[in-house]
Computed example of a mutant assay.
Amino acid sequence: MDYNTDLKRRNPPHLRLREIEVLIISAQELKNVKHVTNMRAYAVVYVQKDLHVAKTHVDEHDGTNPAWNEVVKVRFKEDLPESDVMAALNVDIYAHGHVREKPVGSARVLLCDVLKGGDASEPLDNPIQCITVQVWRPSGRPHGLLNLWVPPTGRFLIRRESLSFSVKEAVGAQEEEKEEEEVEKNKVRGEICVELET
């Protein structure tokens, strides 16, 4: 065998990769695979598993309804056609354990359903679109739902802080608005009282 041919075979040319961002929000009503202790779930995200895999943090507290609210970056071959049925974003959910990781379920979203193109420099082309997909057990039975968001351009164009879907934060923001309104009303009342006195 020719030495140069063998060298090329062992060292293929550098692959051109594409990277997309995915917000893994939460899951609900997952199968409880930990019967003694609280289930601590995390998600493994990939398009081509042998090429690149991204992971979320482990949710320590929410059991079968984990909330990650985490942006992960996933890389895959640039020449992978989005119209190909094999071109899909896969999310495998596991329960973290001291001895071994137990599979909880998997979800799959075709790239052609979420990557719609658009101008990456134009925020109006990048609306918030949360998707909910079915989680399937390793046995093939449906069990639970996964909430995620893939921007149409593959990149988030707004500040990361604003991607939070926390109910607590939303309630806090509403309370702040009410307080500001109350302060404004009191200020107006004070001005009216001063005018009446004079």
Results as ranks from 00 to 15, higher is better:
Asn90Trp: 05
Asn126Tyr: 11
Val135Gly: 01
Val135Asp: 00
Asn126Met: 09
Glu101Leu: 10
Gln134Pro: 03
Glu182Leu: 14
Gly118Pro: 03
Leu157Ile: 06
Leu110Asn: 04
Leu111Val: 11
His143Gly: 00
Gly97Cys: 04
Ala87Thr: 00
Arg137Met: 06
Ser166Lys: 14
Glu122Leu: 12
Val188Met: 10
His143Glu: 01
Leu163Pro: 06
Gly140Asn: 05
Asn90Gly: 05
Tyr94Arg: 14
Ser121Arg: 06
Ile93Cys: 02
Glu182Met: 10
Val91Phe: 07
Ser164Val: 10
Val167Cys: 08
Ala173Tyr: 11
Gly172Cys: 12
Asp92Val: 11
Gly97Arg: 12
His143Leu: 04
Glu122Tyr: 13
Gly144Val: 07
Glu169Ser: 13
Leu163Arg: 12
Arg159Trp: 09
Glu169Thr: 07
Gly172Pro: 03
Trp136Leu: 04
Ile128Leu: 14
Glu180Ile: 15
Ala95Gly: 04
Glu180Asp: 02
Val114Gly: 03
Met86Gln: 06
Asn126Phe: 15
Pro152Gly: 08
Lys102Glu: 01
Asn126Arg: 11
Lys178Gln: 07
Ala87His: 08
Thr153Glu: 00
Cys130Asp: 00
Gly154Trp: 09
Val171Gly: 04
Ala87Glu: 00
Glu169Gly: 08
Arg159Lys: 13
Val109Trp: 13
Gly154Met: 11
Ala170Ser: 13
Ala120Asp: 00
Glu177Ala: 15
Lys116His: 09
His96Met: 06
Gly154Thr: 10
Leu89Glu: 00
His96Arg: 15
Leu111Pro: 02
Leu148Ser: 03
Val167Pro: 11
Glu180Val: 13
Ile128Pro: 02
Cys112Pro: 00
Thr132Gly: 05
Ala170Tyr: 14
Pro138Met: 11
Leu146Arg: 04
Ile128Tyr: 06
Glu180Gln: 14
His98Thr: 10
Leu148Met: 15
Ala87Gln: 08
Val188Asp: 01
Ala107Leu: 03
Glu182Tyr: 09
Asn126His: 12
Lys102Met: 05
Phe156Val: 02
Asp125Ser: 11
Glu169Lys: 14
Leu89Pro: 02
Ala88Arg: 09
Ala170Pro: 04
Ile158Leu: 14
Pro152Met: 07
Arg189Gln: 09
Gln134Leu: 10
